[in-house]
Every structure is written in C-alpha cells, then in structure tokens.
Design a protein around this nucleic acid. Structure first.
Lengths: 214, 214
DNA sequence: ATGCTTCGATACTATCGGGTATCCAGTTGG
DNA sequence: CCAACTGGATACCCGATAGTATCGAAGCAT
C-alpha cells in the first residue's frame, strides 16, 4: 500500500501530478458543458452548473475560456467537426444504387435519432447564429463547407454508379440537410409523426433517376 | 373645423374616448410584441421594449396579460391561426397535376421567403416547446391538427386527380412541413444555398407517381 | 531549494429584467 | 355631479447570473 520507493528515490514518472494540466481541465469543462447544455439548453444553463458538473468552479472556466460565448463556440466547433468526420467516413458496399441510398439514409436516421439532445442544441445554435452577425458568418461558412463536401460525395457516387438524378449534387446535398433537420423537428415534436423509413425512401426517390427517362 | 354641435347638444357617439378600451390596448401590445419579438427574438426582447414600442409602459402589459409567457403564447396562437387559415384557403385551378403541385410549391416558397422573421420566431417557439413540457404538449397538438388537415387536403387532391404517389398523404404532409422548415433553415443561413425553384421541383417529384408504374 | 508563474477557488460586484404594490386619473352608472 | 370602479403609470423589489479581483497553492526552471 505504501509506495516507499517514490519517496526514497526519484521515481521514473516524476511524481504524481496533483494539479491537472490546463488541457485536462479544458476537456473536463467541455465535456461538462456538453452534458449541461444538452440537458438544459445553452441559454438556460449557467456557468456555475457547468463548473459544478465538471467538479470545478466558475473560476476554472474563466481560466480556460474567455467567457460563456467562447465556451459555447468551442463546444460547437468540436461537435460539428466530429459530425462531419463521421458523415464523410461511411462505407458503401452495396452493389445496387437503391440499396446504397436506402442504407445510407437509414444510418443517418439512426444517428439522428440517437442524440436528440444534439439536434436541439444545433437548432439553438442556429438561432444564435441568426441573431449574432459574427457567429452567423462563421456558422454560414462552416455550413457551406459541409454542403460542398456532401455535394462532392454525391457527385462522386453517382458518377461511379452511372446514375443521374433529376437534381444536381448541390441540390441533393442541401435537400438532404434540410430533410434531416426538418424531419427531426417534426419527430421531436411528435415521435409518431415521422416513421423511421421515411427519410430513406424519400432519398431513394429523389436521388435515383426516373425509371423511364422522359 | 369646429364641431359646435357636439358641444351644444348630446352627440350621438357619446363623447370622444380619452382612455382606450382594454381590447384596444391589448391589440396594440400584441402588435408591438410581434414587431419587437421578430426583431430581437423572444428571449432577448424585454417587456419594457414591447411596452415602449406600443407607446405604453410595462404596467399596461401586466394589466392585459398574466406575464411574458402569456403574451408570447397569445401572440403565437394568433400567428399560427392566421397561417393555418391562409394555408387551407388556397385555390387550385390547374388542370395538370404537375402544374398544380409546382404552383402550390412556388406559392409556399414565396410566402415563406416573405416573412423570414416569423420563420425564426417559429423556430424559437419550437425550442421553447421542447424545453417546457406544457407548452410542448399544446404545440404538438396544434401541429398534429395542421398535419392532419394538410394530409386530408393531399388525399382529396390526389383522389380528385386520380394520381397516387409512392407516399401516403400523411407522409407527404409531414414531408412538406419538414422540407419547408428545413429549407428555410438553410436559406436563412445562406441565401444562395436554396434556389427558389427547388421546393416546387422536389414536391413534384415526390407527390406525383412514377412515370412508368413499376 | 527558491522565486516566479499559472491554475483555480472564493467572494464579490454590477446589471438586468420579470414581476408587484401603489396611486392617480379617466370612465361609467346612478 | 358624485361615487365606485378600472386601466395604466411610477417606482420599487428581488432573484439570477455573467463577469472580476484577489489570493493561496501547485508546479516549473534555474
């Protein structure tokens, strides 16, 4: 139980840290913020709550972040980054184009249903972006990137499979984002209003070409 | 210029009111609230601002409303009622089903683009409904009614025209709502991301049957 | 070791905004 | 014309919360 050696000779891992590094604290604060914001909403959550959830005090937050805004911003950047990465790195091992679209749609629905909290948070952040010009500009820029990336993916896939939709890749990309958010809005209002297979079926209808070319 | 008669004999319209009736005040407050909430958001707007915009003081608001919540609620009820009425009373004088869908979609886009403020307000109210259970229940109930009405309309139209979509009227209804909101979200983030003809074209593709029945 | 730096806790301030108590003046009924 | 009533103005309260000043303690470098 007693680690005499640590006291008697210089241990190889220096000595046990008592104070966490700034990065550790920053992480804890961010994680706590994610939880508290999700549970209570950004506007209603207080820094004291976030700090308490992180097992610290407000002082710790102000030590690592410029203020509440900065914290929110950092959190959103992280989340959006992660989501983008997850969305781009999906496998596509379906021979049939229809199957591929359906399964991609199903995966999207599942992901979206899994963290409803984040959906709400996203909407709240969107609202914030609408009211605050500087946040809005940054938000729009990031969103544009996400759209472009999605459009590129759609274009590559349809090229590869040799199918052409009625809609351009850009149009499909923005439609996908819109449907994803719009259906989530309805679903969070009333679970029963949006069947799980709706989005996949919509995507299939939209992404695939007419059966008979007109 | 001088209305002697009014002073010399009892006028038929009693005497000119100096103090407005409660209904008049209520109206002025509601109108002011619509403006101020639209401009600054519900959460950020203060009752003092609303009162000032109405040319009154906070006391007047508390004389006609139980509090800020009550005011917000009354305003939303009015707005949603008006919107629903406007949506249901639309004419349909297109022989071709495709034309009909496209023009209905175009009208919807135009209406949605016209009052962006209200779109934002709607989203903010949605968020409020998400956080507050009692508001949420009421909101969900109203939304359900709107969906059902829309679905009934879709069903009647497709019956009349003898076309059957891949999707049920209920599915089309919720999809329409979702697309409308989702695309508005994207458009308010970045005007250029959503061309005006996108929604009509999407609706046409979704509402009309396959060209060749599979 | 020693002194300088940094992290974070504590305690405080400032501000803001919803809500309320009170009072005055316009209205209405008799 | 007077008395009772009521809508609205004024001034206040009070809770909440973002932000800050300060200080002790932990760590790091020489």
């Amino acid at each position: 139980m007693y680690e005499y050696r640590i006291c008697m000779s210089r241990p190889q891992v220096k000595r046990q840290r008592v104070r966490p590094t700034r990065e550790e604290s920053r992480r804890k604060v961010l994680d706590a913020a994610a939880r508290v914001f999700a549970a209570r909403g950004i506007a209603d959550a207080t820094l004291d709550e976030v700090a308490a959830d992180a097992g610290m005090t407000k002082g710790a937050i102000y030590s690592s972040f410029a203020g509440k805004d900065d914290l929110v911003y950092a959190l959103m950047n992280e989340h959006i980054g992660a989501r983008t990465r997850a969305a781009t790195a999906r496998s596509d091992d379906h021979a049939d184009a229809s199957d591929a679209v359906m399964s991609a749609g199903a995966a999207l629905v599942e992901a979206s249903n899994r963290d409803e909290d984040w959906q709400r948070l996203f909407i709240e952040f969107w609202l914030r972006a609408q009211r605050d010009a500087s946040v809005g500009a940054e938000f729009a820029a990031r969103r544009k990137l996400a759209r472009a990336e999605l459009a590129r993916y759609v274009a590559a896939e349809s090229e590869r499979r040799g199918v052409t939709s009625l809609f351009t890749p850009d149009e499909l990309a923005v439609t996908l984002l819109a449907l994803s958010n719009g259906l989530a809005l309805e679903r969070l209002t009333d679970l029963a209003s949006v069947p799980d297979d709706l989005l996949p079926r919509l995507l299939e209808r939209l992404a695939l070409p007419r059966d008979e070319d007109q």
